[in-house]
Protein backbone atom coordinates (compact mmCIF):
# COMPACT_ATOMS: atom_id res chain seq x y z
CA UNK A 1 0.00 0.00 0.00
CA UNK A 2 1.49 3.32 -1.08
CA UNK A 3 0.33 6.31 0.91
CA UNK A 4 0.33 9.89 -0.26
CA UNK A 5 2.43 12.19 1.90
CA UNK A 6 1.72 15.89 1.78
CA UNK A 7 1.82 18.82 4.15
CA UNK A 8 -1.42 19.91 5.80
CA UNK A 9 -4.11 21.05 5.16
CA UNK A 10 -5.57 17.97 3.53
CA UNK A 11 -8.92 19.47 2.57
CA UNK A 12 -9.91 22.57 0.67
CA UNK A 13 -12.94 24.80 0.73
CA UNK A 14 -13.89 23.81 -2.79
CA UNK A 15 -13.48 27.36 -4.09
CA UNK A 16 -11.85 27.46 -7.52
CA UNK A 17 -10.97 30.22 -9.94
CA UNK A 18 -13.43 28.66 -12.37
CA UNK A 19 -16.30 28.79 -9.88
CA UNK A 20 -15.56 32.43 -9.07
CA UNK A 21 -15.49 33.38 -12.75
CA UNK A 22 -18.67 31.35 -13.24
CA UNK A 23 -20.34 33.40 -10.53
CA UNK A 24 -19.24 36.61 -12.24
CA UNK A 25 -20.77 35.36 -15.50
CA UNK A 26 -24.03 34.57 -13.71
CA UNK A 27 -23.99 38.03 -12.18
CA UNK A 28 -23.51 39.52 -15.66
CA UNK A 29 -26.61 37.74 -17.03
CA UNK A 30 -29.31 40.22 -15.92
CA UNK A 31 -27.49 43.01 -17.74
CA UNK A 32 -27.24 40.87 -20.87
CA UNK A 33 -30.97 40.19 -20.84
CA UNK A 34 -31.64 43.91 -20.33
CA UNK A 35 -29.28 44.72 -23.22
CA UNK A 36 -31.07 42.35 -25.58
CA UNK A 37 -34.42 43.89 -24.62
CA UNK A 38 -33.11 47.44 -25.02
CA UNK A 39 -30.77 47.17 -27.99
CA UNK A 40 -31.95 44.01 -29.74
CA UNK A 41 -30.23 40.79 -30.68
CA UNK A 42 -27.09 42.51 -31.92
CA UNK A 43 -26.21 43.07 -28.26
CA UNK A 44 -26.03 39.31 -27.82
CA UNK A 45 -24.05 38.94 -31.05
CA UNK A 46 -21.41 41.47 -29.97
CA UNK A 47 -21.16 39.86 -26.52
CA UNK A 48 -20.82 36.36 -27.98
CA UNK A 49 -18.20 37.48 -30.51
CA UNK A 50 -16.15 39.20 -27.81
CA UNK A 51 -16.33 36.21 -25.47
CA UNK A 52 -15.35 33.82 -28.26
CA UNK A 53 -12.55 36.10 -29.47
CA UNK A 54 -11.09 36.43 -25.97
CA UNK A 55 -11.15 32.68 -25.46
CA UNK A 56 -9.55 32.18 -28.87
CA UNK A 57 -6.76 34.68 -28.23
CA UNK A 58 -6.06 33.20 -24.80
CA UNK A 59 -5.96 29.68 -26.21
CA UNK A 60 -3.92 30.70 -29.25
CA UNK A 61 -1.36 32.71 -27.32
CA UNK A 62 -0.80 29.95 -24.79
CA UNK A 63 -0.55 27.42 -27.59
CA UNK A 64 2.09 29.52 -29.34
CA UNK A 65 4.06 29.92 -26.12
CA UNK A 66 3.74 26.25 -25.19
CA UNK A 67 2.08 27.21 -21.94
CA UNK A 68 -0.67 25.14 -20.31
CA UNK A 69 -4.06 26.41 -21.39
CA UNK A 70 -6.01 28.48 -18.86
CA UNK A 71 -9.14 28.76 -20.99
CA UNK A 72 -10.94 26.46 -18.52
CA UNK A 73 -10.79 29.02 -15.72
CA UNK A 74 -13.36 31.14 -17.62
CA UNK A 75 -11.47 34.37 -16.95
CA UNK A 76 -11.16 35.04 -20.69
CA UNK A 77 -14.93 34.68 -21.08
CA UNK A 78 -15.45 37.22 -18.29
CA UNK A 79 -13.04 39.64 -19.97
CA UNK A 80 -14.86 39.22 -23.28
CA UNK A 81 -18.31 39.81 -21.81
CA UNK A 82 -17.22 42.84 -19.80
CA UNK A 83 -15.44 44.32 -22.82
CA UNK A 84 -18.59 43.84 -24.90
CA UNK A 85 -20.63 45.59 -22.21
CA UNK A 86 -18.34 48.58 -22.68
CA UNK A 87 -19.02 48.89 -26.40
CA UNK A 88 -21.91 50.52 -28.25
CA UNK A 89 -24.21 48.00 -29.89
CA UNK A 90 -23.40 49.32 -33.37
CA UNK A 91 -19.66 48.64 -33.07
CA UNK A 92 -18.23 46.92 -36.17
CA UNK A 93 -17.40 43.37 -35.13
CA UNK A 94 -13.80 43.55 -36.37
CA UNK A 95 -13.21 46.49 -34.07
CA UNK A 96 -14.66 44.53 -31.15
CA UNK A 97 -12.33 41.63 -31.98
CA UNK A 98 -9.40 44.04 -32.11
CA UNK A 99 -10.36 45.19 -28.61
CA UNK A 100 -10.26 41.57 -27.46
CA UNK A 101 -6.80 41.14 -28.95
CA UNK A 102 -5.57 44.15 -26.99
CA UNK A 103 -7.23 42.94 -23.80
CA UNK A 104 -6.07 39.33 -23.83
CA UNK A 105 -2.73 39.46 -25.60
CA UNK A 106 -1.31 42.91 -24.88
CA UNK A 107 -2.68 43.48 -21.38
CA UNK A 108 -3.07 39.99 -19.92
CA UNK A 109 -0.83 37.43 -21.60
CA UNK A 110 2.21 39.59 -22.33
CA UNK A 111 2.39 40.38 -18.63
CA UNK A 112 2.31 36.69 -17.71
CA UNK A 113 -1.32 35.63 -17.93
CA UNK A 114 -4.00 35.47 -15.26
CA UNK A 115 -3.02 37.09 -12.02
CA UNK A 116 -0.03 38.97 -13.42
CA UNK A 117 -1.56 41.89 -15.36
CA UNK A 118 -1.43 45.30 -13.70
CA UNK A 119 -4.45 46.78 -15.45
CA UNK A 120 -7.92 45.42 -16.11
CA UNK A 121 -7.76 43.84 -19.59
CA UNK A 122 -11.34 44.65 -20.62
CA UNK A 123 -10.89 48.22 -19.47
CA UNK A 124 -7.72 48.81 -21.46
CA UNK A 125 -9.37 47.11 -24.44
CA UNK A 126 -12.19 49.61 -24.19
CA UNK A 127 -9.87 52.60 -23.80
CA UNK A 128 -7.75 51.58 -26.80
CA UNK A 129 -10.89 51.20 -28.94
CA UNK A 130 -12.24 54.49 -27.63
CA UNK A 131 -9.09 56.36 -28.57
CA UNK A 132 -8.62 54.51 -31.88
CA UNK A 133 -12.18 54.49 -33.17
CA UNK A 134 -13.79 57.40 -31.37
CA UNK A 135 -16.46 57.74 -34.03
CA UNK A 136 -17.89 54.24 -33.87
CA UNK A 137 -17.24 54.06 -30.14
CA UNK A 138 -19.54 57.02 -29.49
CA UNK A 139 -22.25 56.25 -32.03
CA UNK A 140 -25.12 55.77 -29.64
CA UNK A 141 -27.65 54.15 -31.93
CA UNK A 142 -30.83 53.45 -30.12
CA UNK A 143 -33.56 51.42 -31.79
CA UNK A 144 -36.47 53.76 -31.10
CA UNK A 145 -34.76 57.07 -31.60
CA UNK A 146 -32.75 58.19 -34.56
CA UNK A 147 -29.91 59.16 -32.34
CA UNK A 148 -29.88 59.55 -28.62
CA UNK A 149 -27.55 61.43 -26.39
CA UNK A 150 -26.31 59.52 -23.37
CA UNK A 151 -27.70 60.59 -20.00
CA UNK A 152 -24.32 62.03 -19.09
CA UNK A 153 -24.36 64.19 -22.21
CA UNK A 154 -27.91 65.23 -21.36
CA UNK A 155 -26.86 66.09 -17.81
CA UNK A 156 -23.94 68.12 -19.12
CA UNK A 157 -26.36 69.97 -21.38
CA UNK A 158 -28.54 70.78 -18.39
CA UNK A 159 -31.30 68.30 -19.22
CA UNK A 160 -32.80 65.92 -16.69
CA UNK A 161 -33.31 62.35 -17.91
CA UNK A 162 -36.14 60.41 -16.26
CA UNK A 163 -35.00 58.43 -13.19
CA UNK A 164 -37.02 55.42 -14.26
CA UNK A 165 -35.35 55.51 -17.67
CA UNK A 166 -31.96 55.48 -15.96
CA UNK A 167 -32.92 52.54 -13.77
CA UNK A 168 -34.32 50.48 -16.63
CA UNK A 169 -31.62 51.57 -19.05
CA UNK A 170 -33.72 52.24 -22.15
CA UNK A 171 -31.48 55.08 -23.28
CA UNK A 172 -28.29 55.51 -25.26
CA UNK A 173 -25.07 54.03 -23.97
CA UNK A 174 -22.85 50.97 -24.09
CA UNK A 175 -24.39 47.50 -24.30
CA UNK A 176 -24.10 46.50 -20.68
CA UNK A 177 -23.92 49.76 -18.83
CA UNK A 178 -27.37 51.29 -19.23
CA UNK A 179 -29.65 49.19 -17.02
CA UNK A 180 -28.66 50.18 -13.47
CA UNK A 181 -31.21 47.80 -12.00
CA UNK A 182 -29.80 44.71 -13.74
CA UNK A 183 -26.25 45.65 -12.78
CA UNK A 184 -27.28 46.20 -9.19
CA UNK A 185 -28.93 42.79 -9.16
CA UNK A 186 -25.72 41.20 -10.43
CA UNK A 187 -23.66 43.15 -7.92
CA UNK A 188 -25.81 42.02 -5.02
CA UNK A 189 -25.45 38.44 -6.23
CA UNK A 190 -21.66 38.78 -6.17
CA UNK A 191 -21.79 40.25 -2.68
CA UNK A 192 -24.01 37.46 -1.39
CA UNK A 193 -21.79 34.81 -2.95
CA UNK A 194 -18.77 36.42 -1.33
CA UNK A 195 -17.08 36.91 -4.70
CA UNK A 196 -16.61 40.63 -4.08
CA UNK A 197 -16.57 42.64 -0.86
CA UNK A 198 -18.70 45.74 -0.38
CA UNK A 199 -15.85 48.19 0.15
CA UNK A 200 -15.07 48.88 -3.52
CA UNK A 201 -18.56 49.40 -4.96
CA UNK A 202 -19.95 51.22 -1.93
CA UNK A 203 -17.00 53.60 -1.64
CA UNK A 204 -16.89 54.15 -5.40
CA UNK A 205 -20.59 54.91 -5.84
CA UNK A 206 -20.74 56.71 -2.50
CA UNK A 207 -17.87 59.02 -3.41
CA UNK A 208 -19.46 59.91 -6.74
CA UNK A 209 -22.75 60.61 -4.96
CA UNK A 210 -21.27 62.80 -2.24
CA UNK A 211 -18.94 64.71 -4.58
CA UNK A 212 -21.76 65.35 -7.04
CA UNK A 213 -23.85 66.67 -4.18
CA UNK A 214 -21.05 68.89 -2.92
CA UNK A 215 -20.23 70.18 -6.40
CA UNK A 216 -23.84 71.08 -7.09
CA UNK A 217 -24.56 68.31 -9.59
CA UNK A 218 -27.63 66.11 -9.77
CA UNK A 219 -26.18 63.42 -7.49
CA UNK A 220 -28.78 60.71 -8.02
CA UNK A 221 -28.69 60.98 -11.80
CA UNK A 222 -24.88 61.13 -11.81
CA UNK A 223 -24.77 57.86 -9.92
CA UNK A 224 -27.26 56.10 -12.19
CA UNK A 225 -25.72 57.34 -15.45
CA UNK A 226 -22.78 56.21 -17.51
CA UNK A 227 -20.73 53.17 -16.67
CA UNK A 228 -20.57 53.73 -12.93
CA UNK A 229 -22.44 50.61 -11.81
CA UNK A 230 -20.72 48.40 -14.37
CA UNK A 231 -17.39 49.85 -13.30
CA UNK A 232 -18.02 49.78 -9.56
CA UNK A 233 -19.41 46.24 -9.35
CA UNK A 234 -17.61 44.43 -12.15
CA UNK A 235 -14.43 46.27 -13.09
CA UNK A 236 -13.09 47.99 -9.98
CA UNK A 237 -13.62 44.70 -8.13
CA UNK A 238 -11.33 42.77 -10.49
CA UNK A 239 -9.13 40.80 -8.06
CA UNK A 240 -5.90 41.01 -9.99
CA UNK A 241 -5.84 44.76 -10.45
CA UNK A 242 -7.33 45.92 -7.14
CA UNK A 243 -5.96 45.76 -3.59
CA UNK A 244 -6.43 42.64 -1.50
CA UNK A 245 -7.14 44.35 1.82
CA UNK A 246 -10.45 45.83 2.98
CA UNK A 247 -8.96 49.26 3.54
CA UNK A 248 -7.13 49.11 0.25
CA UNK A 249 -10.39 48.36 -1.51
CA UNK A 250 -12.10 51.24 0.26
CA UNK A 251 -9.33 53.63 -0.79
CA UNK A 252 -9.50 52.25 -4.33
CA UNK A 253 -13.23 52.98 -4.44
CA UNK A 254 -12.84 56.48 -3.03
CA UNK A 255 -10.00 57.31 -5.42
CA UNK A 256 -11.89 55.97 -8.43
CA UNK A 257 -15.00 57.95 -7.41
CA UNK A 258 -12.97 61.12 -7.03
CA UNK A 259 -11.32 60.77 -10.44
CA UNK A 260 -14.60 59.86 -12.11
CA UNK A 261 -16.16 63.09 -10.85
CA UNK A 262 -13.15 65.20 -11.83
CA UNK A 263 -13.23 63.84 -15.39
CA UNK A 264 -17.00 64.07 -15.69
CA UNK A 265 -17.30 67.61 -14.37
CA UNK A 266 -14.07 69.22 -15.50
CA UNK A 267 -12.58 66.97 -18.18
CA UNK A 268 -13.15 66.95 -21.91
CA UNK A 269 -14.75 63.49 -21.85
CA UNK A 270 -18.33 62.99 -20.75
CA UNK A 271 -17.48 59.76 -18.94
CA UNK A 272 -14.54 59.13 -16.61
CA UNK A 273 -15.12 55.70 -15.05
CA UNK A 274 -12.66 53.83 -17.28
CA UNK A 275 -9.79 56.26 -16.82
CA UNK A 276 -10.49 56.50 -13.10
CA UNK A 277 -10.29 52.73 -12.63
CA UNK A 278 -7.20 52.48 -14.84
CA UNK A 279 -5.44 55.10 -12.74
CA UNK A 280 -6.36 53.27 -9.56
CA UNK A 281 -5.13 49.98 -11.09
CA UNK A 282 -1.72 51.56 -11.34
CA UNK A 283 -1.89 52.72 -7.73
CA UNK A 284 -2.93 49.26 -6.51
CA UNK A 285 0.48 47.92 -5.39
CA UNK A 286 0.90 51.04 -3.27
CA UNK A 287 -2.61 50.80 -1.83
CA UNK A 288 -1.89 47.19 -0.87
CA UNK A 289 1.30 48.22 0.90
CA UNK A 290 -0.17 51.23 2.66
CA UNK A 291 -3.06 49.21 3.99
CA UNK A 292 -1.00 46.19 5.01
CA UNK A 293 -2.72 44.47 7.93
CA UNK A 294 -1.14 44.58 11.36
CA UNK A 295 -0.40 41.03 12.55
CA UNK A 296 -2.11 40.09 15.79
CA UNK A 297 0.32 40.67 18.65
CA UNK A 298 3.11 41.59 16.24
CA UNK A 299 5.95 43.58 17.82
CA UNK A 300 7.28 46.69 16.11
CA UNK A 301 9.96 45.70 13.64
Amino acid sequence: MKLVISASPHISSGATTRKIMGDVLIALCPALIAAIVIFGWRALLVTAVCAAACVFFEWGFEKLCHKPSTVGDLSAVVTGVILAYNLPVSIPLWQAVFGCLVAIVAVKQLFGGIGKNFANPALVGRIVLFLSFSKTMTAWVFPDAVSSATPLAQLAAGQKPELLTLLLGNHGGCIGETCALALLLGGVYLLIRGVITWQTPVCFVGTVFVLSLVLGQDALRQVLSGGLFLGAFFMATDYVTAPQTYWGRALFGIGAGLLTCLIRFYGSYAEGVSFAILFMNILTPYLSRWTQSKPLGGAKA
Binding site: T17, T70, P243, Q244, P295
Partner: peptide, 23 residues
Protein backbone atom coordinates in the same frame (compact mmCIF):
# COMPACT_ATOMS: atom_id res chain seq x y z
CA UNK B 1 -4.78 14.48 -3.43
CA UNK B 2 -5.87 18.10 -3.69
CA UNK B 3 -6.12 19.87 -7.07
CA UNK B 4 -2.94 21.16 -8.68
CA UNK B 5 -2.16 24.79 -7.89
CA UNK B 6 -2.98 27.40 -10.53
CA UNK B 7 -1.92 31.05 -10.75
CA UNK B 8 -2.69 33.37 -7.84
CA UNK B 9 -5.57 35.64 -8.81
CA UNK B 10 -4.88 38.03 -5.92
CA UNK B 11 -8.39 37.61 -4.56
CA UNK B 12 -7.20 38.30 -1.01
CA UNK B 13 -9.07 35.40 0.58
CA UNK B 14 -5.91 34.21 2.36
CA UNK B 15 -5.55 37.63 3.96
CA UNK B 16 -9.22 37.80 4.94
CA UNK B 17 -9.12 34.30 6.46
CA UNK B 18 -5.93 34.56 8.50
CA UNK B 19 -6.77 34.56 12.22
CA UNK B 20 -3.47 36.27 12.99
CA UNK B 21 -3.95 38.89 10.27
CA UNK B 22 -0.94 37.85 8.27
CA UNK B 23 -0.76 38.32 4.49
Amino acid sequence: VLPEPSACIRCGRCIRHCPLRLM
